[in-house]
Design a protein around this nucleic acid. Structure first.
Lengths: 209, 209, 209, 209
DNA sequence: TATGAATGAGATTTCATTCAT
DNA sequence: CATGAATGAAATCTCATTCAT
């Protein structure tokens, strides 16, 4: 019973803990495996035993958090596709819910999220944010197209939409960087999202030619 | 006279040119001095002669552009301080003018600006953007305070203001990343700035208590 | 009784099987114990339990085949010594028989022989071929000496003999590398051995002085 | 004049010398750069300055010798192609000349040749011998085809030819391994090549069906 | 009978930097 | 004005081996 190990070995845990600190401080690329393992009272080989390589170690650190984040996003995008077009209320409620859930996930895995979203340059997760932005962008474009279809003389302003997607995702990163507790985070992000929704409504379509 | 030669030496120019390409391609941290100097038909020592070190070389590449950018910003902030508080028209015109001038500076020094704003991680200029954001932030706070002074029951929403400063500066970076010519850049940035001005008006103050 | 189990344990068999594949593919030196054991659904420790070390594992893989090969060679060399000197017919028949038996042993243990003869660099069996060559060489020298004894003005050309021993053994390795089935192997090796016998007759003795 | 350096720097020379010893002793793959550089009184970085990488260092060691060897072979194969088919005398003289030149090249670059032909496993030159064998093989096949064309009821025995190519090249390696001076090398290789030529004549064609 | 954990000694490679000339 | 040489301190990764349990 005691011997399941592997997933919960003390050394493995220690490695993750020290790696978290080091990644947070120096970022993935500049983080030193030597530092991490010696902090953990082990040798570099231990990382390769437990995690395969440096990227694997990062995965060990952020994997769980990443899973939660991905789940929230997947669910959102899935519902997004299924929702009846033009169902504004739905969109709105959905949006609030997403903000809520993202905030939860982020603050329940604070260090991991900072690493994943802010300090993963050079790792296999660099580009993770861009991936989210792209999906959000696609989803926004689809939505805006459905609006444009019933608005003669208007067409989708893709560049504005793309920028808004960036701004929206960056808002969460910004929140994460500036607010340490979930409550103030919520107070910050709410008006921000309000503002972005209004901006979306007003700027996602432009005059046709 | 003797020193002028050093400033304009052919080798120095070549070094700058090759460094620009390499920084642009790999970013400061991953750029290789060896690659740069051998592309220039020189050896690493030359960099140390002309520029002191890797950061100095970067300075050689972006220095001129940085000066122009700083000048525009300095001028803006100086006028900002001097302007009579409550003089809205002034603010607005100023704003348009700043956008215009920034766009000019950016597109007249496109490569250098991309390096400075987007590929300078690891160099002494990483953090440059944050510096601008901070100054913008201070200036916005001052302005908002002067508004708040005549609006009973309102107070400055510093966090929102800080975020808006970020968004505004990032908008220029985004513009730079997505629009290659000045004309389309202008078309992109105008509505974006419009939106941000409106947002500023609406969200910079919050209800007291 | 207890020990029999160890000799035939399923895990031991599996280890041997997976090691065979890995040695064949990468050669002894580059073969990874980790790969072998994980392919076998075991851990590296198992190798040390069953075989002592990496060389022991190789022994486990090729041992049986090696025994057969050695037996054939031993028998040959024993008969060789016992045979009356000058008994040419005997030599000839013996030779054909050896070729036949070697081909059998090789093709009845194809993978093991390839490992042993072709992919054992870095192991305790590297040099195995040279050992055979040396014994063959000694036996040829003895034979040639007995010829030389009755041929005045002639002496043994040891260098040529040594080379012919090499070529002969290498011919079997070459056969193994190029012919996958026993029948075509036989068709290949027969004229080769013919040729070598003729060469032996013609070149094993040289003019004295 | 003194300052051409690069090709003749003392350290570079020393590195080559120490590398030669180490490669000779351990073979390319097991040779240690650390050992080589510390023997030379330098650090590993020096290898990367002078030679780029471990393979480059090997190139530094065997390059010159390789060039000579390649030149001899190229010349041979070029003449081979140009020679009128069926011109036997030419073939024979050519053959003797090749043997002579190869022996010269090998013994004028003894250590380098041992490394190149015998201890280069794991390097970019592993497979060098096979390349030569293949070319020799092709050239032999072409020659044999021209013979077969005028010999009704005969066809080329490709397998025998391929084996003979191997044996011929290996004969030089064998010579290199067993004879330390050029004179005894010549005495050894001459009858060997004689034998191979005869074998070639007798076994390169087989009865059609 | 075998595992999981960990070591330790190595490997090759990269690079900014220094400095005598 | 610039070179060629060399350093030194890192980096990541590999692997056979050991051993308590």
């Amino acid at each position: 019973m005691d011997k399941k190990i592997a997933e919960n070995s003390e050394s493995r845990e220690k490695l993750i803990e020290c790696a978290r600190r080091e990644f947070l401080e120096k970022g993935f690329a500049k983080a030193s495996l030597r530092k991490i393992t010696s902090d953990a009272g082990l040798t570099t080989g231990a990382v390769y035993f437990f995690f395969g390589d440096k990227n694997g170690l990062l995965e060990g650190v952020v994997g769980e958090a990443l899973g939660q984040l991905t789940a929230v996003l997947e669910e959102h995008f899935r519902e997004d596709i299924e929702s009846a077009p033009g169902n504004y209320q739905h969109q709105d409620g959905d949006h609030d819910q997403l903000t809520e859930k993202l905030t939860d996930v982020i603050y329940d895995n604070y260090d991991e999220m900072r690493i994943l979203l802010d300090r993963s340059a050079g790792s296999k997760y660099e580009g993770f944010i861009d991936g989210i932005v792209d999906r959000l962008d696609s989803s926004y474009i689809a939505l805006a197209e459905s609006y444009a279809a019933v608005m003669p003389g208007k067409r989708v302003n893709r560049k504005m939409l793309h920028w808004l997607s960036h701004v929206q995702i960056n808002a969460f990163v910004h929140m994460m960087q500036h607010e340490r507790d979930k409550e103030s985070a919520r107070r910050f992000i709410k008006p921000v999202m309000d503002m972005l929704v209004k901006a979306w409504m007003e700027y996602s379509l432009e005059d046709d030619e």
